[in-house]
Amino acid sequence: MRCLIIDRMHESLMPMLEEAGIKPDYRPDIKREEILNIADRYEGMVVRSKTPLNEELISRAEKLKFIARAGAGLDQIDVEVVRKRNIYLVNAPEGNRDALAEHGVGMLLALFNNLLRADREVRNKVWDREGNRGIELMGKTIGLIGCGYMGQAFAKRLSGFGCKVLGYDKYKKGFSDDFVIEATLDELFRETDILSLHVPLTSETKAWINEEFLSKFKKAIFLLNTSRGEIVPLRALRAALESGKVKGAALDVLENEKLKTLTDRQIQDFEYLVASDQVIFSPHVAGWTHESYVKINETLVNKLKSIFFNG
């Protein structure tokens, strides 16, 4: 089988594919128009998020047997079209769950202990101990929304901090274990101190965590988002910070990550978040470590081998 790789990948992928009996064609700089023109030559495609794999593109790929998404999210892929064509679709949440879990804990610790502000102040010869007094994770209740690979890995990392972890997942039941207690949304609204999001971007979750949703929490909460930015509109987060319903936020993702294309309203809301010491950011790298770069490849190739060569 021939496989077109349209995004930049760790160099380990090519020998892994060849060893599995799949011939890779690595074109990380390819443009969409060229993909459309040559898609009919390949049985497989490996993608990240360069371009939408919609009906226009998939219809050109007449020989396509599989799509491998190097990562977890499938929001750039028209899953219904893929299913109708009986194309195998594999992704690799197992590959970056550990990276994401560690990053999430790191963001919370940085936020709770004012590490970014304290570092900036000390560099400017400001020695303010009282102004940078932190708060502890110990004893806090974490409310997870989404308890798949990412949510479960994050819950496991929190186990050493003495936290109570409640998990809600609309599409999963019976997942309580040593690290997370299955809960309803109402229970999360009552008990959560820190809300952490681990759901994919779908028509159901887009703009789900809005002002109305956030207003339902009994306590003022902290918000951690390492899933998809479009789930939490900038406007809703700003309003919740202004009202005090959200005391602080750690954001690895944003509603619009192409910062030069923000709308006028998004610019206003983004600048408000930027000016706040109670908000910290990272550029969508929570699952993006040197180790996960390789683990993702291993996960994808093992799944493809299972489908085509071990079945």
Rank of each mutant, 00 (worst) to 15 (best):
M1F: 07
C3R: 02
D7G: 10
M9V: 04
E11A: 07
L13T: 06
L13W: 13
L17W: 02
E18T: 10
P24Y: 12
P24R: 08
D25M: 00
R32A: 09
L36A: 11
G44W: 06
V47A: 09
R48D: 00
T51F: 13
T51R: 01
I58R: 00
S59I: 00
S59G: 07
F66W: 01
I67F: 09
I77L: 12
D78S: 04
K84I: 04
K84Y: 06
R85M: 05
I87N: 14
I87E: 08
A92I: 01
G95P: 04
R97Y: 02
D98Q: 09
L100S: 07
L108V: 01
L109I: 13
R120P: 02
V126E: 01
I135E: 03
G139P: 06
G139E: 07
I142G: 15
L144I: 03
L144Q: 05
I145C: 10
Y149N: 13
Y149T: 02
Q152F: 08
F154Q: 05
K156Y: 05
K156G: 10
R157C: 15
L158Y: 03
L158N: 07
S159R: 09
G160C: 09
K170T: 13
Y171V: 06
D177C: 05
D178V: 01
D178H: 06
A183Y: 05
D186K: 14
T192M: 14
T192L: 12
T192I: 06
D193L: 11
T202G: 06
S203H: 04
K206R: 10
K206F: 07
A207P: 00
W208L: 15
S215P: 06
F217D: 11
L224I: 12
N225Q: 06
S227N: 11
S227M: 04
R228A: 13
E230V: 00
E230D: 06
E230A: 14
V232G: 12
V232A: 08
P233Y: 05
A239D: 09
S243L: 06
G244R: 06
G248T: 02
A250L: 02
L251C: 03
N256G: 10
E257P: 02
T261L: 15
T261S: 15
T261N: 14
Q266A: 09
I267F: 09
F270G: 02
A275D: 14
D277T: 00
Q278N: 15
I280L: 11
H284N: 05
V285Y: 08
V285T: 13
G287C: 02
G287W: 00
W288K: 06
W288V: 05
E291V: 11
N302A: 15
K303D: 14
F309G: 03
G311V: 12
